[in-house]
Design a protein around this nucleic acid. Structure first.
Lengths: 356, 356
DNA sequence: CTGAAAGCGCTTACAG
DNA sequence: CTGAAAGCGCTTACAG
C-alpha cells in the first residue's frame, strides 16, 4: 500500500476544523494556558480526525528546549558503555527527555563534530565519555555556548566547567593490589594499556586532571606497591593494546620472566580475557601457581574455573547518576557550582586469588 | 567561570556584521545557492567572530529533513543490541545522520510513546526492534504518516509496509540440531524462552508473520527433529525465563529426567550461561556425557573448557544493513517495494559437542 | 551574484 | 477563556 503521503496537517488546519484560533488550538493541544473544557474537546476531536501531530521543531524553536540530551561515547558496543547508556536512558526517558547518541570510536575529530552537531540541534545538555582526556577545548566551548556537560567515566583537562561522574579507579586498583599483598604476594604484575604513560606517572606526584581510567588504575597499582614499601619493577608492567590477543602476549611475556610474578592484576575486562587464556594455555593452576584479578563483573568471570576475583564497577549506577546530574544541571541552570562525583568500585574475592 | 550566557547570535546578526542580507549570509554559511567568494569570506569571518552556530531546528523546519534517524530497542545493555547499534551508527553517522535512541525495556507502551515522540521530532526514519512482534498497528500508523521504518531482528504482524532485516533463526537452530543428529544424538533437549508458544508452533504449519527470534528457533528445532523422523518429546523442551538462573533450573530439570538428553541446544546466549553452569555443577564431562550448543560468539565461549560450540549471528552486520536499508528508503522514497532481508547465521563447532 | 519578502508551524505576550 | 498579531531563525522562490 503506497499511498502518496498527504502533507501533515498543521495547527492551522486543526484550528479551522474546530472553529477556533490557532492560539486556542495550541493551548488545548499543548496543555498550557487556559481552555474551556468544551473547547478543548472540540479541538482534540478535530486533531484526532485530522491525524494531527505536533511539530516538535516549531515548538522547540519557541520554547527554547528540545527535551533531548546528547550522549557521546567511544564505543557503544563495549559492555561498559552499553550498560551505562542503559542507566542514562532509564533515568532520562521517564523525565521526558530523549537521547541523541553519537559514537566516536575514540577519534577526537568525531567527538568535536558530534558536539557541534548536537549543539546545532539544540540539545539541552550532553553527557560525554571523552576520547582524549587531555583535550577539553571543544567541551569548554560548548559550555560557553550554553550547553551543560557531564563528563562520564573520565575527567578532562581544559573543561573546568563540566560536571563529572567517575569511578575512583586509583583506589580500586590499589585495593586489588592490597588484597594480593595481604595474601603474601610480593612479585605482582599488571597488564595495562597505559604502559606508555608509566614514566609520567612515576614522575608526577600531583593528581592528574584528565586521564584515562587505565592510567588511574596503573597509578593505583604503583601507589599500593609504594605504600607497602616495595620497589616498582618495570619488568612486571605488561603493556598491551586494548584487545585480547595483545593482553595474551603481554601476559605471556610476564610469565616468561626469569623471576615471574606470582600474581597479576588486569586493569580491564577485555585484558582479563587474554590474561586468563594465557594462564590457562600455559597450564598454570590458579590460584596455586598464579593469582589473577580482573575488572568488571562480566558473565564469564563466574563460568570459568576457578571463578575470577574481580573489581566490580557500579557501571549502571554511573549511567543513572550521570543522567540525574545532567537533568539537575538543565533544571538548576548554570549558577550551580560544578559537581564532581566519584563512585567506589568493589573488590569481589573469588577463586582465582590465593596465598602465594 | 559562570558568565551569564549571551543569547546565541542569529543569521540576522551575522548578516548585519557582514553587511549583506540574511539570504546571502544563509547561502554562504549553509553551502547552498551561489555566493561570490569574497562575500562568502566576509560572512564566514563575521560568523566566526560572533561565534555563530546554525539553528538546526529552524533549518529542519524549512528543509523538511532533520538528518536524524530513530533507533528503538528493547535493551541497549544487551550485547546483541549494543553491537547492532554500533553497526547502525557506523553506517549512518558518516552519511551525515544522527541517532535518536529509545530503550523500551520490552514494554509496548514505551515503544508506542517512543514512536510518537520521534515522529513529532520529525526524524527521517526509524529502526525498531519490536517489543511485541504481534503488535504492529502503531508502526503502520507511523509509516502512513510518512516515517519509513526498518524492522530489526524480528518481523511484526500488522506492519506490512515496513522493511525488515532479520536472521534466519529457524534455519540456524535447525542446523545446530542437524549437527547433533549427525553426531548420533537422538535425545536432544532445548532450553528456550518460547516454551509457552509450543502448542501454537506444533499446530501451525504455515510460517508465522511476526515472531520472537526465540520462537523461530524453537520452530527450527522442531522442524529438524521432524525431518529426521523423530517424535518430539515435550519433556525435552526446557522452558526458561530470560535469565541465567531460570536457564540453570530448566537445564537441571532436563538432566534429572529418567531418560535425560545426551545433547542440549540453548536458543540464546544468556540461557547458555545458565545451562553451561548447570552441566558444570553436576560434574558432567563435555562432550562425553553431554553435548552443548549455545548462541552468539561471546568472549566467554572460548574461555570455558571445553570451548562452546555455538551458532554465530552476524550481529554487527545486522546493524550496518539496517542502517543502509533505512538510508536507502529515506533517499529512495516510499515508492520502492518493501524489502525483507534475511541473514544467515553460522554454526561454529568447538569442543562442547561430540559423538554420543 | 544579491536582496526583499514570504513562509515553515508553532508559542507568547497583550488585549479584550 | 479567547483571539489577532508578533516572532522564533532559518530557506526558498522571485526579481533584479
Amino acid at each position: 500500500m503506497t499511498t502518496r503521503q498527504p502533507p501533515s496537517p498543521s495547527l492551522i488546519d486543526v484550528a479551522r476544523a474546530a472553529g477556533v484560533s490557532t492560539a486556542t488550538a495550541g493551548r488545548a493541544l499543548g496543555g498550557y494556558g487556559q481552555v474551556r473544557a468544551g473547547t478543548r474537546e472540540r479541538v482534540l476531536t478535530a486533531a484526532a480526525e485530522l491525524g494531527y501531530r505536533t511539530n516538535g521543531l516549531a515548538r522547540s524553536m519557541i520554547t527554547g528546549s528540545t527535551q533531548t540530551i546528547g550522549v557521546v561515547v567511544t564505543d557503544v558496543a563495549n559492555p561498559f558503555f552499553a550498560i551505562a547508556l542503559r542507566g542514562i536512558t532509564d533515568v532520562v526517558q521517564p523525565a521526558g527527555f530523549e537521547v541523541l547518541l553519537a559514537n566516536t570510536a575514540g577519534a577526537l575529530v568525531a567527538e568535536q563534530r558530534a558536539l557541534t552537531v548536537m549543539s546545532e540541534k539544540r540539545v539541552d545538555g550532553v553527557i560525554v565519555a571523552a576520547a582524549q582526556p587531555a583535550e577539553g577545548a571543544h567541551l569548554e566551548h560548548a559550555i560557553e555556548l550554553g550547553v551543560p556537560i557531564v563528563l562520564l567515566d573520565r575527567q578532562v583537562t581544559g573543561a573546568a566547567d563540566a560536571d563529572s561522574i567517575t569511578i575512583d579507579n586509583e583506589h580500586a586498583a590499589a585495593e586489588a593490589v592490597t588484597h594480593l599483598l595481604e595474601l603474601g604476594h610480593r612479585r605482582i604484575g599488571v597488564v595495562t594499556e597505559a604502559g606508555e604513560q608509566l614514566p609520567a606517572l612515576l614522575a608526577a606526584d600531583d593528581r592528574p586532571g584528565g586521564a584515562f581510567p587505565s592510567a588511574m588504575r596503573l597509578r593505583g597499582y604503583l601507589g599500593a606497591l609504594g605504600a607497602a614499601g616495595l620497589e616498582v619493577d618495570e619488568h612486571l608492567i605488561g603493556s598491551a593494546r586494548y584487545d585480547r590477543d595483545s593482553a595474551y602476549d603481554a601476559t605471556t611475556r610476564l610469565l616468561d620472566l626469569d623471576d615471574p610474578p606470582t600474581a597479576v592484576l588486569c586493569t580491564d575486562n577485555v585484558l582479563a580475557t587474554g590474561a586468563f587464556r594465557a594462564a590457562q594455555d600455559r597450564g598454570l593452576r590458579m590460584p596455586e601457581q598464579l593469582s589473577l584479578i580482573g575488572f568488571d563483573d562480566e558473565p564469564w568471570t563466574t563460568l570459568v574455573r576457578p571463578e575470577l576475583t574481580i573489581v566490580e564497577q557500579p557501571t549502571y549506577e554511573l549511567g543513572t547518576r550521570a543522567g540525574q546530574q545532567l537533568l539537575d544541571r538543565i533544571t538548576g541552570g548554570r549558577e550551580r557550582r560544578t559537581n564532581h562525583v566519584q563512585l567506589r568500585a568493589k573488590l569481589v574475592v573469588r577463586g582465582s586469588t590465593g596465598p602465594v
